[in-house]
Design a protein around this nucleic acid. Structure first.
Lengths: 242, 242
DNA sequence: TGCCGCTAGTCCTATAGAGGAGTATAAGTA
DNA sequence: TACTTATACTCCTCTATAGGACTAGCGGCA
């Protein structure tokens, strides 16, 4: 974070870092339009080409987004690279669909060690824990356990479960002012316990994909930890190599 | 492949396509040093900056590789993004290691439908099929079935199994003149059959990761299909999202 | 023999400027 | 009112040029 700005570095890299800082600091929020290239070039006292190169770096890193003829914007996190997309989430009619959400439990509790570790919380911290099923055509395809730190997510603890939408991140933003800017996901395989088997209509011991996700805000602080389990049978990942 | 070169496109893109073609055609082989930027710029009658931008495109696509002060090279396929890296392949001493290879069978046969489909072969084609175990510290961690089209891979059919190295691609290049330039991998989970369980020292029904790979040559023609199975327990994937 | 500096060749950074192309909005016209 | 045109703003492409920085190899010197 506090990288030493080495003035021997190329100027476009120094500027890249300064722009990056303006995003991290929250001066430029996700979705916001930033100054025009020409304005920035003048402000930072470099040629237009140099400023373009600095911006290009941030675009290729996924922090900025250009729209020809309109301007350059701070990119919102898009979860199109999430591992979840490799579940065959298709409805009876065949089209891809966002699974509905069925809240099983919302509970405020002292954070277990595992949750504390992922959310970087001190011992004794309280969290909201949400357990829910995700369903397609009424059939459970995934079981999720979501942990959120307090007091930031107090609104979740007091909300009516029926009011929680299937997609939580826009809701966090609206209800709690917490913006998810990045995330890290891990994938493992396990044999389902009898408890999970029952929830997911599987046989005990069937293989399940487990995806753990730590979501972070603009400043990089962890604000959500979730663990999802789904039938491995529905999972199919692919990748190109060259 | 035969994209229409639209002259309304920016020049740097047109040049990008032409350079790309020179790689695909085999004029510039993997590992080769290409002409200097300045030479190319003159040859294609554009400014240096334009040529640099064309080359930059190919670099970011992973086809070329720059070495400051030395030159620009055609990149060899590197399998550092392969899904296999997510198996915990560590020896007793803890360091990462290339598993040894133990050939179980080398067989020439008419290609089954599944193999024909992946290698794009007509009905009745013959292939070499290699079955092998991969071991760490003498313990089987993966079972692989590899299919190679004939007559290109005749040398594999007649080779002594003991002479086949653990890493096959450099060997293909040396023995058969076939260069693997890209690949596509798919990942699934299955419950192991009793046959595979025995080979991998697992219990029948334990979860296994199945990785299927189609490897292609410079021109994009499929030249190898392989299916690998390993204990899901050893598999751990992770990804960053933003 | 072994070290050191020089040099040629390469890619890398940066400048200043011109005109092209896409987009949104304001102004004009039927 | 409804459509078209102008315009002002944006990012995009491209030129021509200059000097910096990195690398490999050659040749001189101890």
């Amino acid at each position: 974070m506090t990288a030493i700005a080495d003035s021997r570095l190329p100027r476009y890299l120094l500027i890249r870092d300064q722009l990056h800082q303006r995003i991290l600091s929250g001066e430029w929020k996700p979705g916001a339009l930033i100054d025009a290239e020409s304005v920035l070039a003048e402000r930072y006292e470099v040629a237009l080409g140099t400023m373009r190169k600095a911006i290009e770096q941030l675009v290729s890193e996924g922090l900025l987004e250009r729209r020809h003829g309109v301007g350059t914007f701070v990119r919102r996190a898009s979860f199109e690279t999430s591992l979840f997309r490799f579940f065959r989430f298709t409805s009876a009619t065949g089209e891809r669909v966002v699974p509905e959400s069925q809240i099983l439990e919302v509970q405020v509790a002292t954070a277990p060690e595992e949750v504390r570790r992922h959310l970087q919380l001190p011992a004794g911290s309280e969290v909201v824990m949400v357990r829910r099923l995700r369903l397609i055509d009424g059939q459970a395809v995934q079981f999720e356990e979501i942990s959120l730190p307090l007091p930031q997510f107090q609104a979740v603890a007091t909300a009516e479960p029926a009011d929680m939408p299937a997609l939580l991140y826009p809701w966090y933003e609206q209800q709690c002012g917490q913006i998810v800017a990045s995330a890290h996901e891990e994938l493992m395989v396990e044999k389902v316990s009898s408890e999970h088997a029952q929830l997911l209509a599987l046989q005990t011991g069937d293989p399940a994909i487990v995806i753990e996700r730590v979501a972070r805000d603009i400043a990089g602080a962890p604000i959500e930890w979730r663990r999802s389990r789904g039938a491995a049978e529905r999972f199919h990942y692919h990748i190109d190599i060259r």
